[in-house]
Structure formats: structure tokens, C-alpha cells
Design a protein around this nucleic acid. Sequence first.
DNA 1: TTGTACGCGTTATCAC
DNA 2: GTGATAACGCGTACAA
Lengths: 349, 349
Amino acid sequence: MADRPTIYAVAAQCGVSTTTVSRVMQDETFGSERTRQRVLATALELGWVPNGAARGLASRRAGIVGLLFPDLGEPDVGQEESPLYVDQVIRGAERIATHAGQAVLIAALKASGGKSLAYSVASKVDGLVIMSRSLADKDVSAIARTVPVVLLAHKPARRSLDHVAVDNRTGARDVTSHLLTAHGYENIVFVGGPVGSPDSSERFAGFCEALAQAGRTVPAQPVAEGGFTELGGRAVMERLLADGQLPRAIVFGNDEMAIGALSSLKRAGIGVPDDIAITGFDNISVSRHVTPSLTTVRQPMRELGEAAVELLLARIRQPDATRKTLFLSTELVVRGSCGCVETPVSRFE
Amino acid sequence: MADRPTIYAVAAQCGVSTTTVSRVMQDETFGSERTRQRVLATALELGWVPNGAARGLASRRAGIVGLLFPDLGEPDVGQEESPLYVDQVIRGAERIATHAGQAVLIAALKASGGKSLAYSVASKVDGLVIMSRSLADKDVSAIARTVPVVLLAHKPARRSLDHVAVDNRTGARDVTSHLLTAHGYENIVFVGGPVGSPDSSERFAGFCEALAQAGRTVPAQPVAEGGFTELGGRAVMERLLADGQLPRAIVFGNDEMAIGALSSLKRAGIGVPDDIAITGFDNISVSRHVTPSLTTVRQPMRELGEAAVELLLARIRQPDATRKTLFLSTELVVRGSCGCVETPVSRFE
DNA sequence: TTGTACGCGTTATCAC
DNA sequence: GTGATAACGCGTACAA
């Protein structure tokens, strides 16, 4: 561990210049076969590995891409087996980066104080993928001035940054169309998230598109807003129940709200999907386990990670290319709450 | 993006030496308040961030720890939501490292060709956590000569490397004791994994300990070997069924085998747990969803990641401290297959 | 408290 | 095909 050998030692040992050693290490096809073998052999003999920092300094390339994501707080002991969507993104990013010979530096940013960590990471990498809600906009901007940045699932970026996001609109359209086409429900409504949420309005737009496509009346706005929370979904459902005018189906803006609604309906003795059909959005892990299991829309998190790194690598190669925005398709996950026959959790064989 | 400013630019701009700038960036309490503020202000103004590579080269510290894990191959489309245990390890490692101001570099190593990536990562970090089956032993040794290494869940390390692993023996003892104490089963047998697997023999040893503790006859060896696969578990079960001498309970060396056995029993019309009780080991994600749900032993993957990085940081601080091996406790996961009342998957509220 | 000057280990730019 | 040498940007003895 002490005194690691340097390129000088290797060069001296086998009687060539450091230049030659350096080139042999980088270029698979450099020099005469004899020189190559000699260099490689002594490197192995001395146990020499090129120093990453020195390499990075001289070549101005770290060979590392960074991934910043929001820290969701202390791990929830009971829930710790639930697949966090961030994990999927990490795996996707790792896959593409490795393929391109880049390593991946990851950092979970806490809501407070993640800032310095973010700058620290930024100084060590050739480029950065920043996930939504990891970092304040101004810090993102500052960092983006020092290193290429790709935004992941951020709200529509005003800046000139590359951006990868999910096609919320089509996802919502698909699930709504399913309700319309496969089940022929007449009275379908949409429950949105927080007012002003871009995700929510995109999903509402998709909902409307499906309705229009089917020749139905298109509402001007969501029938209610549930704030994207389970509690909010329950509150909305209680109100709808009180009104006494239940629709035949409800498209919720996300899974949490749908699950909240499910609990209200259960308590009220209303059957799902027989009396009313319910759908969500996101495909969070509990959606599969509620009763009935929730029909929803899956976000392709792994693919998001992959696409983000691909975009980033392209940007690193061509810093002046025009900014790109990529929308990935969602996938309809049909389960029981829409009225389809529930496929049981797969057992064996 | 072009021509990032250097420490010289900042020093010149605010009329101090580079030393002062450097110190202000590292030491929260350096210099007069006035100087500090001036430096910080111009750094912000110029958008200067200390170059990570230069820093690493000069200080001989990268501020990065690496994590090498085996690449499980192409993601399985259907299964992609299953929480991979590696993800848990990553999160644990990330948590501790971040806390210590270190970033985490991750790399999935393919069975073939992961070697060069491993060396590349090794050259960029201050230390490395290497998970079991990521890398050939000789490469681990070679890397360990250039940078501190902690082995994670490796088979008992012959080398003088720090090592974190799971206490298989106690886990197996716990689950066996549960069968003995909580249910009072008389005839209990153990089905092992591949012959020669250290994990399998440790678990068998724990099984025997529990038996001995309860004053039962201790077998010399497992009643059968199922190779740690679902198919193997099924084969073993078929044979036991053919013999006609069913034990009252079977402790399987891992979940896969237990699940294979479950399917055989179902087909044979034997009731679990009423006719025969079954337990597994590992707590893989499907264990929760089979019928009956599988009583098993959870391996604390997140804690493994945390412990490994803690050990690594200690090792980096004190390269010459004596080698440490850490065994983490497992956790008994009681579900339905042992005969306990099955707790339903938690719904809402 | 602050500044000078050297070294960290490699790559890149020229020469040969 | 190969070699000398100047960057690369920062940390840090040492000096002031």
C-alpha cells in the first residue's frame, strides 16, 4: 500500500520513456509488439496502475459520470424491501455508463445541505444527471455552467439543458382509453394532483384526449384535486360519496390518491370494480397488493436512467449540440381495479 | 463551459494568494472574516469550483469510495420491480459514505471482462468494497495491494482483508428454534445447497445447534441437497414424497428450494403448514407472495453495505490496524408456512 | 495571518 | 515508432 509505483518507475524499469508507457496503457494498438509486451509485463510486475487523479488532471477527463437524486430520508424499516424507483434509475444509468467505459458516481441529496455534496460531486465528474427535486434550481444552473448536465424528470426546463422525462400525457390517455374501449364505461372523471403541478396537468390533458378521441364530452378541468396524497384521495372520495353522484370510473392522477379512495370505498361498502372502477398512475409497489389490485401506469424508471446517461454522453462529446428533450413512453399495467380479471400474483411455474 | 476558472484566477481577482483561497475552501474557520467573505464571493462570482482531479492529485485523497458488485445480467423485464439485494447494499453504502463526506462510485462487474473496469475504478477511489462473486480472487488480491479493500459476503477470506458477512449460523438456528419452540414439531430435517457451499454448511451447523439445544438427535448431515435452486428443491421434495416418510417440518437452506418444494407439495395435495411445515432462507421477494407465504430469514443487505463502508473508512484512516471480520445478525421473518397465523399484506391505514 | 514555490503522476505537444 | 518537456490545477511545507 505504501509508495505505489509511478509511471516513471515503470518506464525506467523497462528502459522506455513515460510517453511510451502512457500510450501503451491508452491505445490498444500502439507501438511495436515487443515494446507493448515489455511495458505491460513490467507494469504487472510492479503492480502499477495509472493514477486516476493524475490522469484526470492531465487529460481533463475523469471517466466518471455523476447521478444526483433526492434523499428520501431515513429508510423505512418496514418498507425497506419496496423497490425504490431511484434504484431502477441508478441501475439503468450504471448499465449505459459502464458500457461506455464510464464509472458512475452517485449521491443522495438531502433537502437541506445537499448542496455542498452536489458541488463536490460536480467537480469530480465529466457530466451529471440530476433527478427531479434533488437540488434547488439556482444550484442546478450554477453547476450546469461548470459541467454538462442532463435533467431527469424535472419539470419542463426553461434552461437550455438536456432533459429526459416521462410521457405523462400518453400514459393518461392510454389508461383512459382502456376504460373507454375495453370496458365501455360511460361516466368517467379525473382527479388531479396539486394545482399547478405540471405532471397533473399533463395527465389531465391525456385524459381529455382519450375522451375527445372517443367522442365524449371533454371537461374543462379535473373533477377534484387530491394533492397527490393518499389522504387527499380519501378526502376527494368522501366528498364524491357525500354528493351521491358517483361516476362509473375514476382516473386518479397517481396511485397514492387511488389507494386512499379505495379505502374510502371499502368502508362505504361500494364495490370496486363492480360499482365503480378506479385507476392510478406511477405503479408504486403497494399498488399490486391492494384489493382489488390497482390498474395503473408504469413509469419506465430504468429506461429513464439509461436515456439520461446516453444523452449526457452525447452532450459531453458535443458540448455545442442543440438541446434535446426526450419523452419516454409509459406502460399500461392492467390489474383488477379497472374491471379486468385479476391475474393472480404469479406463483411457481 | 469553456475555460473553467482556476484557483489562480480567483486569487488574482481578489488580491490574495492561492494558498489563502485553498485554505478558505477547506477550512471553515480559516482566516479573517473579511478575507473569507471576499474569497467566497469572488469564487461564486467567477463560478469557480475546485477541480476534483487536481485536488485528488495534490492531496492524495479522492474523496470517493468504490463499490463493486456482480452484474446479474440483462434486467429481467417481468421481474424488474423486484428489489434486488444489490440495491439495498448500494443504498446502505451510499448513506454512510455521504455522511462521511465521501461520494460513492459504483460498478457492476460482468463475469467476463469486468476486470479492466474494476482496475479503472480502483484507480479513482480511496478504498473499495467488493461484493462476493464480483471478481476473481487474484484480481481482488492485486487491487488490494493498491488500495484498501473490504470484502462483502465473500466466502471466508483467507487473505488479510477486512470482511463483512451475514451470520448464517445464527439465522438457521433461529428459524429452527422457532419450529421447535413455537410449534413443538418433532421430526425436523434440513435440506442443504450445493455440496461444499460454505453458506450451506454454516446454515446446517445452525440447524444442528438448535436441535442440540433442544435435546434432540443431531443428524450428521443434511437429509438431502437441493443445489440452492427451485428445481433442486422440487426434486428433493419428490423424492421425500416417494419415500413416503414425510417429516413434520423441513428447514430449507434457501428460499428457492423451499418454493420448489411448495409447488411439489401442492401438486401432491399435501397441506402446508398443516401436514408439513416449510421454511426458507434469504427472504427473496417472491417469498412473501407464495401460498402459504414463506417463513424465512432475512439477510440485512442494507446494513451490510453500511458496515462495509464503515469498515472501509476506518481502514483508510488506519491502514495498519488489524484486520476485522464482522458478522451481522439475520432476522427471522415469520409468515405462514411454518404454521403461524399468516399476517395479511398490509393494505391501507 | 498570509505568501512563495514545489510536487503530486499523468497526458499532450512537439521534436526526432 | 519514440522521447523530452511543458502543462494540468491544486495542496502544503516553509518562509515571512
